[in-house]
Design a protein around this nucleic acid. Sequence first.
DNA 1: GACCTGCTGCGGCTTG
Length: 821
Amino acid sequence: MSASPSPNLLRRGDDWFTGRGWTAFPFQHEAWKAYLDGKSGLVNAPTGSGKTYSLILPILLEFLKEHPDDPAKANNGLQAIWITPIRALTREIQAAAERAIEDLGMKWRVGIRSGDTKTGERTKQRNKPPEILITTPESLHLLLASKGYEKFFSDLRVLVADEWHELLGTKRGVLVELALSRLRGIRGNAFRTWGISATIGNMQEALDVLVPAGTRERIIIRAKASKETEMITVMPDEIETFPWAGHLGIKLLEKVVPIIYESGSTLIFTNTRSQCEIWYQRLLEADPDLSGAIAMHHGSISRELRDWVEDALHQGTLKAVVCTSSLDLGVDFRPVETIVQIGSPKGVARFLQRAGRSGHRPGAKSTIHFVPTNSLELLEASALRRCIENEVIESRIPYIRSFDVLVQYLVTLAVSGGFRREEVLKEIRGTFCFASVSDEEFAWCLDFITTGGNSLGAYDEYHKVVRDEEGVYKVESKRVAMMHRLSIGAIVSETTLMIKYMSGGYIGAIEEYFISSLKPGDTFWFAGRSLKFMKVKGTEALVKKSNAKKGKVPSWRGGRMQLSSQLSAYLRKSLEELKLEDYHDAELLKLAPLRDIQAHRSAVPATDELLIEYFHDREGYHLLMYPCEGRGIHEGLSSLIAYRIGQFAPLTFTIAMNDYGFELLSDQPIPIEEALGSDLFNLTELTADLNAGINATEMAKRRFRDIAAIAGLIFKGYPGKQKKEKHLQSGSQLFFDVFTDYEPTNLLLQQAYDEIMTFQLQEARLRSALERINGQTILFQQPRKATPFSFSLIVDRLRERVSSESLQDRIKRMRLALVRE
DNA sequence: GACCTGCTGCGGCTTG
């Protein structure tokens, strides 16, 4: 059926919606109204709730209102841009939009502009823009880098940022902010901005970043119906034999098998790609009947194989898929029935997002099984449960002053028509990210792209942009323009090798350093297959099928997720309940025997206590503290404490940390009591001591690699011919050193240090952690041997230093030492 | 009796 279009359609909206078998929710009506009133805003709705229609429809309806007699009018120019963080979502949105257009009897076209869009299609789009264009932040910037883009955008009335919570808090979000500032510059008041976001802790800020105050009237629209989530912890039968350390979780594997059988379809989330590979194999070993019924999915597996898995899941031919966060977003599955999370999700938002992949219908309950991988994760389960009950959820902290992205953007504009200083400065100051940029800083950026700045002036290749007589900044060199288009974006990946069969066929990607640990003929497992490594050819690692049952499992250097501050706070509460034997949930009750060992050998801290353990064994003198603040904070805190103790005695420490605490290990006695008596946690000297204690230069140097790549200092190579990691590393280090020596005020260099303070050491959070510790009672314990709390720290440290074979020996020896005592 | 850590996302050329 094709509803006859009418300006009154909104009022008859219910009929039209139910006619299609959809339900119209109050929040959708609210969004339609706000949109048609000319507002900008943010729609806060879960996936599966019809959030796309909450914004597609009013865009169409507004046009119909303006052209009631000519709904089929074609060639209206580009009316709306829809941004998504991942390409796979563009097709879904296109389908939804086309459905709505057809229902209204309109003739609008919906185009996709992404890396998948063919050249011919791109040309067509440029000559005759679709009314709705669905794209990614990167592709939008590529459009800004093409000649005559102003004309292309000249009819635009709205930009919708879908899954805005995914982009906020990333440099890709900064790309969106910058593109928006330009579109507002072109279209002025005729332009609206809308976002669609899942619930996060800082909803208002999410709106402020997307739609700066003062641009238009703004509103946040919330879908009221909150999703019910049931969390089921998979319990070890007896805590006595459950590991105190480790993150693999195989011990509970046999309890996961029945979960798979009881449900039509299951997603099993793991935290790392290697864990994903291992679980897939182990599940098949545990139950060969699952062969053909389960598959795996992670980011290093080729797109082709992943598509196959996604399709099979969609069609219901697979019972379960073991995956990483590669399936957090993306393909709109036929609702998956059951979710399993192996190991700590480290954050409430991530856990709920994964849970939400089940019961993917409005009103349906989501169910998630949590599989702890070690004893302390039962504590996290309890904390997680409380966070869900109290609707505590993490925030996404937006980047500010990302000069690398700004510099890239300026060159992007210079590649197309060129830009004028005052105009662009005014626009970027309207963004959240660059509101505080001073005249001098902006002048530095212009200098940097025109002359290479103070330190690179001698090198022509950094004179990318010229300023002509009329004051327009533009790129004149075709080569510079091309290389720039090739490097637009804010994602910097590890360089990888493609895994290919000798006979052809691409399976996935693997990191250089893993392949360098293999000899030709070695077997390894990848994508659930046993492969024999043959040789490296260019950027390809060639392999053959193997029948070997044993082999290495690759590991990748990914990001380290750390416990969120929200979850950390609840973890400390759970600890207190453990101490008080206030067992309000099954997880804590299960931990009772472990609690007794900890309390007997040492102590369990309450929320107003800081536990410090100090003991001596054949390894040396161990000093352990448990602030339970998450790994990043412990990284800063441990260096700070090590530095301050070092003021009393010239000691060398080996430092280890995890989400619960940190360890300082020394071969000499540690004057801890003296140190504790001396205001060890004082805040006054924090910045100075931190700078003295950490190796900020080393940390900043690593961080600088990405900054240099985004700012266009390092060319990553032509597509399919990427440069070796070694070259990228040494290139960025060279720049780092040159800037440090000759231009210490270089904004990119400073940015590297700022990012360390903001994201890695999290100075603000560190400060409040110290404040909290200063108000706590110190619980100083001298256990005779390792405690349950200390165990995972000690094992982690051992693992970092030695190979896994000898790790077994080490642990065996440790155990013997424990027994002997 | 305690161990196999480390996510995701995008984009794109030339010349034979």
